[in-house]
């Protein structure tokens, strides 16, 4: 949780210094929901996420250097500078992407769960979505398929109360979002996202059920984002300072740190040591991103297609030459 918090604070700083561009969706305040859900996963489980994805990627074990490198648009980034903030990915870690279209990742996650079922693997998929995604057609279609096909998937709804600036109550006919699972005769439940251990326990139970019994579920985690929808949104037009202050009193890091101390599960010295280690790690990630080369313009069309012939053809493509035809066509015609 601390790594995500400090990492994202650094991301905001770097964004203001214009070393990170594009859309950038921060999730400070949601760390309990993120870590509780993701740390319940086993190595072979797969995670899909929305575009508010930095924390989820880090929690699933994606290298902070690769995350920061991607935000900086460098070759060392998790998508080699092609994806940016919204499109982190690490296949080897079972992190199957940050996706930019609201609810669009849920049908894909159902497909990944279908592969698990097809191959009879012992694994499950978790797909993170925001509260507003539950109003999309893709939500309905994907969960319906998960239900009729008995797929091992948990739809993780991180309900941070707002879809951009629109409240859940204003946007949703059924604002208790976990109840929407009942439309598919699927189990749904709600948990307090500011309590990391409560999330961990609920997510673990539902993932186990998915993995062992092939039963899909919806887990709604109620949480809050301190920052705006993206860095371009101050986050103040649609909510009050009082509301934000109230939520900060229930900060997931604060709650957990206090519990560790109260229950003597950690000492202040240990907590301070973690803080120092994490700050150092984030500094290193920035250094690694800075040291990583920018992708050369000559690589513009790399990674477009996978087969060797197309790869070869497109490797010769220059900007404005859609199929590399200068070489293929004009040379072919003897011109």
């Amino acid at each position: 949780m601390l790594l995500i918090r400090i990492f994202e604070e650094e991301v905001e700083r770097q964004y203001k210094r214009a070393r990170i561009g594009g859309y950038c969706h921060l999730a400070s305040g949601q760390e309990g929901a993120t870590v509780g859900a993701v740390h319940s996963m086993q190595d072979e489980d797969l995670l899909f996420s929305s575009y508010r994805t930095h924390g989820l990627a880090l929690a699933k074990g994606v290298d902070p250097d690769a995350v920061m490198g991607e935000l900086f648009g460098r070759e060392g980034g998790s998508a080699h500078g092609r994806g940016g903030s919204m499109h982190l990915l690490d296949f080897s870690r079972g992190f199957l992407g940050g996706w930019g279209i609201v609810a669009g990742q849920l049908p894909l996650a159902v497909g990944a769960a279908l592969e698990i079922s097809y191959k009879d693997k012992r694994a499950a998929v978790m797909c993170e979505l925001g509260d507003a995604a539950t109003n999309m057609g893709a939500w309905h279609e994907a969960l319906n398929l998960a239900a009729i096909w008995d797929l091992p998937i948990v739809a993780l709804v991180l309900n941070n109360r707002y879809g951009m600036g629109t409240t859940v109550e204003k946007a949703s006919g059924e604002p208790e979002l976990y109840k929407r699972a009942s439309a598919f005769r699927m189990h749904g439940e709600r948990v307090d996202g500011q309590d990391v251990e409560a999330v961990l326990s609920a997510a673990d139970r539902l993932l186990t059920r998915a993995r062992e019994e092939r039963k899909p579920a919806v887990l709604e985690v109620v949480t809050y984002r301190y920052r705006g929808h993206s860095v371009a949104d101050a986050g103040t037009a649609y909510r009050t300072q009082e509301e934000m202050d109230e939520w900060k009193k229930r900060d997931p890091l604060l709650i957990y740190r206090q519990r560790l101390l109260d229950e003597r599960r950690a000492t202040q010295a240990q907590i301070d040591a973690i803080q120092a280690r994490v700050e150092k790690r984030v500094e290193q990630a920035v250094e690694a991103a800075e040291a990583s080369p920018e992708p050369p313009v000559s690589s513009l069309s790399q990674h477009l297609y996978g087969d060797p012939a197309s790869r070869e053809q497109f490797s010769r493509m220059s900007p404005g030459s859609p199929f590399g035809e200068r070489e293929l066509v004009l040379e072919g015609l003897g011109r």
Binding site: S78, A79, H80, F91, H303
Partner: peptide, 9 residues
């Protein structure tokens, strides 16, 4: 494939 830098197809 492109958006994820060739890491998955």
């Amino acid at each position: 494939r492109y958006m994820f830098g060739g890491e998955v197809g």
